[in-house]
Design a protein around this nucleic acid. Structure first.
Length: 415
RNA sequence: GCGUCGAUGGCAGAGUGGUCAAUUGCAUUAGACUGUAAAUCUAACGCCCUUCGGGCUACGCAGGUUCAAAUCCUGCUCGGCGCA
C-alpha cells in the first residue's frame, strides 16, 4: 500500500473543484476533507475516539517543532510514530492517516508575528498600518532565519534550537506521518515585496534540499512505510510570485502540495486560484491553516483537496460556536436560559445538550465545556467539507454554498 | 456592661489630609482568535453629558476641624475579639 491520489470527478460548475481519494499506507481519505489539528499528538480536549466517531474525522495533523521540543522525536519514533503514540487508530486497531507540519509556520508565528499582533490573514487595515509604521521590533523574536535554516528559541524553556530543511525531514521521518511537508518559510502578510521574493527563493532552495534528504532517508523507521512529501507554495499576496512558486515546486518530485503563507482577506481567492491553476492536476493540494467556512468554500471551489485549521478547536475553547445561522458566543448572557440543543443537527453528539448547559459549563470553568464545544465545532466543519464533496458529486456545489452562506453570513455568498 | 479593633464600589481587599471616582484580584458585560507560545487575549465596568474633556453623587450614619477629608475629631449604629 503506497501513496496515490485518484480524482473521481471534476465539478461541472467550478472548473477547478474536484472529488477524490488520497490513498495512504494507513487508509484512504475521501476529499475534499478537513484535517483535524492535534499539534502535540493530541487534539486538545478530545480523545481520538471522539475525533473519529463523534466527529467523523478521517485524518489528523501534528507539528514537528512542538513534538521535537516535547517529548522529542526519538520517543515518538519508539512508539511507532505519533499516530500509534496518540492511539489514532480504527476500531480494528490499524493506524489511521496523518500529516505533520514541518515547523515552517513557527518561523512566522515565533518570528515576524511575535509582538505584532498579526495573524497570517491580514486585513487591509493591517497592511496600511504596516506601510506607515517604522518597524520597531522591541519584542524578542523566538525565530531568526538565515539561508541555511532557522534558529528557534524553545517556547518551553527558551533554549536555542536549530532547524534546517534536512533536520525537519529527519524529525518528520521519526514522527512517521503519512504526509509530511517541506520546511518552508511562512512570511508575514505585512512583509514588503522584496522580502517576499527573497523568502520565496529561499523556500524553493529548501524544497530541493527537503526532497534530497527525504530520498536519502527512505521509509520512516517509526512505521516502516514510505511517506509522501508535499512541497509548500508561498508568495504572499503577489500573483506572479504565487504562480512562480507553483510552477517551480510543481516541476519538482513532490507527491502533493501545501498552499501556505499569508494572504489578505481580499487576495486569498486570487492567490489560491493562481496556485492551483499552475500546479500539476493529478497531485493533491492541501490549503494550510485555513478553516473559516467561507474560506473552505473558496478553497474547494479553487481546487484544494484538504484543509487543516486550529480555529474550530481554539475558538471552541474560548466559547465561540459555529451554527448554521452564524457564529455565536455561548458565554453571552442570553444563553443562560436557552434550552435549545447546542446543535440543531440531530446526528451531532452535541444535539444531546442544551445551550444553557454549555453556557453553565463555561461560566463555571468546567473542562467538559472545552470538550463539548470542540466536538461541536469540529463536527460542524468536518461535515461542512463532507457536504461540499457530496454537493460536487451531485452538481449542486454553488447552490449548497449559497444556501449555507445566506444563513451563516446572512447574505449571498461573496463572489 | 467595660475595653479594643474594624466598617471602602456586586464580592474580597488596598489606600490613612490634596496627584482618589478611588491600586489589585474576582465577578459581570461584550469582542477577538485561520499550517496552536492560546482552557488565551482585548475592552468596558458609580451616574449624566457627544469625545479630549466636563458635571454630579460617593468610602457605615450624623455633625465638626481644614483652603482641602475615604483619610483628622465627636457622637451614633453595626460587627469581630478580650474581660466580666
Amino acid at each position: 500500500m503506497s501513496f496515490s491520489f485518484t480524482i473521481h470527478k471534476r465539478s461541472a460548475e467550478a472548473p477547478l473543484a474536484r472529488v477524490g481519494t488520497i490513498h495512504t499506507p494507513h487508509g484512504d481519505i475521501q476529499t475534499p476533507a478537513f484535517v483535524v489539528v492535534g499539534t502535540k499528538a493530541t487534539v486538545k480536549a478530545l480523545s481520538p475516539e471522539m475525533v473519529r466517531d463523534m466527529i467523523g474525522a478521517q485524518v489528523t495533523l501534528a507539528n514537528t517543532y512542538h513534538l521535537y521540543l516535547q517529548p522529542g522525536e526519538n520517543l515518538v519514533e519508539q512508539h511507532g510514530g505519533f499516530a500509534a503514540m496518540m492511539n489514532w487508530k480504527n476500531q480494528k486497531g490499524d493506524l489511521l492517516p496523518t500529516y505533520t507540519d514541518s515547523g515552517g509556520f513557527q518561523v512566522f508565528s515565533l518570528g515576524q508575528a511575535m509582538g505584532h499582533g498579526v495573524s497570517k490573514i491580514a486585513t487591509s487595515a493591517d497592511i496600511s498600518r504596516r506601510e506607515t509604521t517604522e518597524e520597531t521590533s522591541n519584542h524578542e523574536k523566538l525565530a531568526v532565519i538565515d539561508d541555511e535554516g532557522v534558529t528557534f528559541k524553545s517556547v518551553i524553556d527558551g533554549s536555542e534550537h536549530r532547524f534546517t530543511p534536512e533536520s525537519s525531514m529527519q524529525i518528520q521521518h521519526a514522527l512517521g506521518a503519512d504526509m509530511i511537508f517541506a520546511f518552508d518559510e511562512c512570511t508575514s502578510p505585512l512583509a514588503p515585496r522584496e522580502y517576499q521574493e527573497r523568502a520565496l527563493t529561499r523556500t524553493h532552495a529548501w524544497a530541493v534540499r527537503c526532497i534530497d534528504e527525504h530520498k536519502r532517508l527512505g521509509a520512516s523507521k517509526a512505521t516502516g512505510t514510505m511517506q509522501a512529501l508535499f512541497g509548500v507554495v508561498q508568495g504572499g499576496s503577489f500573483e506572479d510570485l504565487r504562480r512562480l512558486s507553483a510552477e517551480t515546486l510543481g516541476a519538482m518530485e513532490f507527491d502533493g502540495f501545501g498552499i501556505g503563507g499569508s494572504f489578505t482577506k481580499e487576495d486569498m481567492a486570487g492567490a489560491v486560484r493562481t496556485v492551483t491553476e499552475n500546479l500539476p492536476e493529478g497531485k493533491p493540494r492541501h490549503l494550510l491553516g485555513i478553516g473559516e467556512p467561507i474560506d473552505l468554500f473558496l478553497g474547494v471551489e479553487y481546487g484544494c483537496d484538504t484543509f487543516d485549521c486550529v480555529a474550530p478547536t481554539r475558538v471552541a475553547r474560548n466559547g465561540a460556536l459555529y451554527t448554521a445561522d452564524g457564529r455565536i458566543n455561548i458565554t453571552n448572557a442570553k444563553y443562560a436560559t436557552d434550552m435549545s440543543p447546542i446543535s440543531d443537527e440531530p446526528s451531532f453528539y452535541t444535539h444531546n445538550y442544551t445551550k444553557s448547559y454549555l453556557h453553565h459549563l463555561f461560566k463555571s470553568d468546567e473542562m467538559f465545556a472545552s470538550t463539548l464545544a470542540s466536538i461541536h465545532n469540529l463536527s460542524f466543519i468536518v461535515k461542512l467539507v463532507d457536504d461540499m464533496r457530496i454537493a460536487i458529486l451531485e452538481d449542486r456545489f454553488f447552490a449548497m454554498k449559497d444556501d449555507f452562506c445566506k444563513r451563516y453570513y446572512g447574505k449571498d455568498s461573496l463572489n
